[in-house]
Amino acid sequence: MIYTVTLNPAIDYIVRLTHIESGAVNRMDSSDTFAGGKGINVSRILQRLGYASTATGFVGGFTGEFIKDGLVAEAIGTQFVQVDQDTRINVKIKADQETEINGLGPVVTDEQLAELEDILSHVTADDTVVFAGSAPASLGNQVYNRLIPLAKQAGAEVVCDFEGQTLLDSLAHEPLLVKPNNHELEAIFGVTFDSREDIVRYAKEILVKGAKNVIVSMAGDGALLVTGEATYFAKPIKGTVKNSVGAGDSMVAGFTGEYTKSHNPIEALKWGVACGTATAFSDDLASIDFIREMYEKVEVETL
């Protein structure tokens, strides 16, 4: 089983209009509402690929019920901890520029955190646990230093999709996968990349610090997978980017699902790139048909 942990899920309220004018009344052309959060996005893509997953984390109020109902409607397992305040709403404005307004999230009590710790303590060596995204402000991202070891002590593999110091801290737990983009990798090491070779060099530093596999996504320049055995480059696929929300999560889902099945890093990279690209070219998370179409276009070379 693959578990996805989303500590601060959200309803993603997508608003579309041609142009937004600050300080004026703006009328939308269309809107959509989805269950959101990085781990939840991973579960939604895994389901489309045919992999079972259980989504966990914290939800509360009518917004939390919306998220649980939405996942159940997609046949995704859930094991959330109920909190007292409403799950947040994130507003994604798609106009001439993309603008996001993200909510703060609920307060999580010590007792509620202990419930989640109990869930993670009961995973098994047959499981993979995906930790993704930021924690509510009441916990802070340092809470991952308590949660990730529980899954590891239970024998599970862990996938960690974080930025900055949280990503660096997670490396002590030897994650199966981390997935910084090239700009996040620059920020971690305080450097500027001048070439693909520079990116590979610093991705290997992430391996030295504990990660088993590192994917560096480079938007329109493709993606790199650096492992202990080899480095692979997936060429970019041409198309119109419609959606930056969830593309990285889709890549994590594609890689994790395939790798847990085949342990083949090249195939896992291909499915990761296919999922991430398909979502980037879609209005929402990509459909399985579009993912398969993108998969046929993925070209991987060994560097």
Results as ranks from 00 to 15, higher is better:
Leu49Tyr: 05
Tyr144Cys: 02
Asp289Gln: 14
Ala274Gly: 04
Val241Asn: 12
Gly222Val: 04
Leu139Thr: 03
Arg146Ile: 02
Leu120Val: 00
Asp169Ser: 08
Ala268Phe: 11
Glu65Lys: 11
Gly254Asn: 14
Val200Cys: 07
Met28Leu: 12
Thr128Ile: 00
Ala132Gly: 01
Leu7Pro: 00
Gln97Gly: 07
Asp96Asn: 05
Glu267Arg: 13
Ala187Asn: 15
Ile206Gln: 10
Glu115Lys: 01
Lys209Pro: 12
Gly210Ala: 04
Asn8Lys: 09
Met294Thr: 04
Val15Asp: 08
Ser138Phe: 04
Cys160Ile: 07
Val214Trp: 05
Asp221Ser: 11
Leu207Met: 09
Val178Met: 09
Ala95Gln: 03
Tyr13Asp: 15
His19Phe: 13
Thr6Gln: 06
Gln97Ile: 07
Leu168Arg: 10
Ile89Pro: 12
Asn102Gln: 03
Val83Gly: 06
Thr63Phe: 13
Ser53Tyr: 04
Asp110Ala: 10
Val252Trp: 13
Pro106Lys: 03
Ala154Tyr: 10
Gln142Arg: 06
Glu229Met: 12
Glu258Val: 12
Gly239Met: 15
Ala172Gly: 07
Asp126Val: 01
Gly37Leu: 00
Ala230Tyr: 13
Ile199Thr: 09
Gly60Met: 02
Gly57Cys: 01
Ala10Ile: 02
Thr166Cys: 02
Ala253His: 14
Gly50Arg: 01
Ser22Pro: 11
Lys212Ser: 11
Gln112Cys: 00
Asn243Cys: 11
Lys94Thr: 06
Ser30Gly: 09
His173Arg: 06
Val25Lys: 05
Glu299Tyr: 12
Asn102Val: 00
Tyr295Ile: 01
Lys270Arg: 14
Leu303Lys: 12
Leu167Val: 07
Asp249Val: 14
Thr231Cys: 13
Ala35Gly: 12
Val107Ala: 10
Val123Gln: 03
Val273His: 09
Lys270Met: 13
Gly77Tyr: 15
His263Trp: 13
Lys179Phe: 09
Gln82Tyr: 14
Lys209Asn: 06
Phe80Glu: 01
Leu303Tyr: 15
Arg196Phe: 14
Ile215His: 10
Lys235Pro: 10
Ile215Cys: 09
Asn145Ser: 12
Thr240Arg: 11
Ala278Met: 07
Ser217Ile: 12
Leu104Pro: 05
Asp96Cys: 03
Val72Met: 10
Pro180Ser: 05
Val273Gln: 07
Pro175Asp: 04
Phe189Tyr: 14
Gly64Val: 00
Leu71Arg: 03
Leu113Tyr: 00
Ala278Phe: 09
Ala154Phe: 11
Lys209Ile: 08
Ile20Glu: 05
Leu176Met: 13
Lys270Gln: 15
Ala219His: 15
Ile288Phe: 09
Arg27Ser: 04
Arg16Gly: 07
Glu301Phe: 15
Gly254Arg: 09
Val15Ser: 08
Phe80Cys: 01
Ala137Lys: 02
Thr260Val: 13
Val300Arg: 04
Ala52Ser: 15
Glu301Val: 14
Gly254Ile: 05
Ser43Glu: 00
Glu117Pro: 01
Glu100Gly: 01
Val15Arg: 05
Asn90Tyr: 04
Asn8Ala: 10
